[in-house]
Amino acid sequence: MSASAPTAWPDALYDQLRAAGITQFAYVPDAGHKVLIDRALGDPEVHAVPLTTEEEGVAMLAGADLGGARGVLLMQSSGVGNCINLLSLTAGCRFPLLTLVSMRGEFGEGNPWQFPMGQATTKVLEAMGVIVLRAETAAEVTTTVAAALTMAFQSGQAVAVLLTQRLIGAKKF
């Protein structure tokens, strides 16, 4: 891995999402999504939508699809728990869904409050019909997100890409 890769991947990821036609960026702020959020806020061609709770984003992206637009939901793993019942909208209506989940409560976590939801994230998503992919290294981000984009917007699936704590680094306490 090149020395610059750990800081370069978020910018490349934003460009990749834009190249795939994504124009609605719904987010609850998280350090792991800082670059994507800042890029979206600075991009006059997209809607950057801060949410009060992550389930709002599930509904918003369903509305985007009704109108022929593509979006992405950026959230921390804690927020996955807030989405559960509204994922029945995604599953029942077969809405495409792309969400990027920055992980807490796993590899190297120093805050014990984060573990219950972090450890349940994959199970909860899968229980509601969301396909879960993981990116463990900077080199994996582009290929994993490319796969997720195809699965979501070509095949109509609900897909979460977990940006793992090994990738984004554990927060220091």
Binding site: H47, E56, M60, G63, A64, L86, L89
Partner: peptide, 22 residues
């Protein structure tokens, strides 16, 4: 008319996504 039959709480934000898209 898109009428929900469940997913209670979704309608306002679906409207936002649709309004931004159209």
């Amino acid at each position: 008319v898109f009428g929900l039959g469940g997913a209670m709480g979704a309608a306002p934000m679906m409207g936002l996504g649709l309004a931004l898209a159209q």
